[in-house]
Design a protein around this nucleic acid. Structure first.
Lengths: 300, 300
DNA sequence: GCAGGGCCACAACCTTCAGTTATGCAAGTC
DNA sequence: GACTTGCATAACTGAAGGTTGTGGCCCTGC
């Protein structure tokens, strides 16, 4: 089965028509038509049945679908990888971080770095953890910064600093005296909370803790990022459990925060490929991030 | 990156030379040379450095290697699948089983089946479990018979019958009186044993039981299939733990056997694809296998 | 040191096939 | 019944991929 046929098959399935597929592949409709016929002839069975002038995938086609889509995806990844490899070393510092860290930590670190190395060019991305790993493996970026426990992948993981899970609340929720003390998790029972989407490892873990409370906290709203949670809390929608960086956003003015009394730290990790050792600029950058993070977490 | 280039890259890496690659792909050496240059030009970096007239993969090439080989493999699987799909329903009964079952159970069942359906054509394979799953998923065969606990794969698994793990020994190892009783596992301590290769799930499980004995049994010889173990035991090389079908090979003349006293059964499974329901012949075949197996296991 | 063989690159030429435009036909839509 | 949408066919074109022939480089063995 020629790659050409595979692409065409995929294009027809995604667009739903041969004409659409032809457009997707930037070829004319007759070219697509001919190619599809050749593919079917070579295979020995029909991929689509022509019913009332339309293409309808056959049973066999549906059996092939998953495999073909997997191959297409891997070819795309290969494409991305080779594209990035050809422009290797074009940029000394390519960093991706989660949205929570993109708020101030990473930009601040970049600013500091560019004072030390004025000429340096920098590329920044914000991505969620799964995409981040992919991006690193495909050489699109060189360093990832995340609060997630991104296991398994064959990537190096270096802890930069540790912090506490924080509870944030609308202004004037707690008294000044209370703010000093960690909040016992039981105090969250029955409270209105902003939930974090399931794909988040930390959020997931916290969620299972919360589920054991009785009455369980109400989480009518669920968001993907800690930043959204922060904003909603600031607007009085409820409490939220967030990382210590998000909690300190805006200098901690918009919301109140208290550490959660929990035997579990939030860890800021730097992740990178094991094969390519970090260069001097990258190492210095990580040093700055660590320094800034520690200083930030020291503030109340 | 064109598929053509991918194949060429792979061929060069496996054969070690451009000429070899050209032969592998059934093209002339200059064609391969030109294609490789085009590939490198399109990529923007060299895949091989020409040193002393030879091709030496560059660092980048090695980074691509794994991904490319994965794609090649998946393309091959797709090829196999489509090849099998085009000759669909050509044969009503295509069965694959492990070597232990190919000894007598499966051939006997086929003989019986062909008395019931005289005209039926049958295809038999013997494969180890991992390959068996692959073969089923690629529509090369329709039914697999195995004693392994082939989990995860999205294949149906139907237990046909249960038996006991058997200990086999050279003739006259045990007294006639002993033969009736199950052998306690502790009796194997310090005994010379024939081991089963690690990839076997059952063998693996037994191995971990044996390892806890003290003194642990000696397993100087390790074999891949139960049949080999049987032959070695018959030649007096030691004891072996085998499935109940292998134990009864040759009518149980060449070796002595005793059930092992163990809270774990050997299960004979039929596995098949969930999407394609079994036809009448296939169902009848499984019925025969079950019947034969139960009868066989009832004998001492 | 020189002949020979293995391996890669270049050149000139040829064939095939994927692409094009133009057109036809069937079926649904208003 | 006119119009639109979508697939198939026909005739043509160009580029890509193939061929053979040749030359240079390097190692090897006499």
């Amino acid at each position: 089965m020629r790659l050409r046929y595979i692409e065409l098959f995929h294009a027809v399935l995604t667009t739903g028509s041969l004409t659409g597929a032809a457009n997707l592949l930037n070829i004319s409709q007759p070219a697509a038509s001919k190619a599809l016929q050749q593919a079917e002839q070579q295979l020995g069975f029909a991929l689509f049945s022509r019913v009332r002038g339309r293409l309808l995938p056959t049973e066999q086609a549906l059996l092939l679908r998953q495999r073909i889509e997997k191959i297409i995806q891997e070819l795309n990844e290969l494409q991305r990888l080779t594209a990035n490899m050809s422009l290797t070393d074009s940029c000394p510092l390519r960093v991706t971080c989660t949205p929570a860290l993109a708020q101030s930590l990473v930009p601040d670190a970049v600013t500091l770095l560019r004072k030390i190395f004025p000429g340096t060019s920098v590329e920044l991305f914000t991505q969620h953890s799964a995409v981040m790993c992919e991006s690193l493996l495909l050489h699109e970026t060189d360093i990832g910064l995340t609060l997630q426990d991104t296991g398994r992948q064959n990537l190096c993981r270096e802890p930069l600093c540790r912090g506490q899970v924080m509870v944030i609340a609308p202004p004037d929720w707690w008294s000044v005296a209370e703010l000093k003390r960690p909040l016992p998790i039981t105090a969250l029972a029955g409270q209105p909370m902003i939930g974090i989407a399931v794909q988040d490892a930390l959020g997931n873990m916290l969620q299972s803790h919360l589920a054991q409370l009785s009455p369980a906290p109400r989480t009518p709203v669920r968001v993907q990022t800690y930043q959204l949670a922060h904003s909603l809390v600031a607007q009085g929608e409820g409490l939220a459990l967030v990382d210590p960086f998000t909690a300190r956003r805006d200098g901690g003015k918009a919301v109140q925060m208290r550490p959660l009394d929990l035997r579990m730290d939030v860890v800021l990790y730097a992740i990178y490929r094991p094969d390519s050792p970090l260069n001097a600029v990258q190492k210095r950058f990580l040093g700055l991030v660590r320094q800034l993070a520690q200083r930030l977490l020291a503030t109340v």
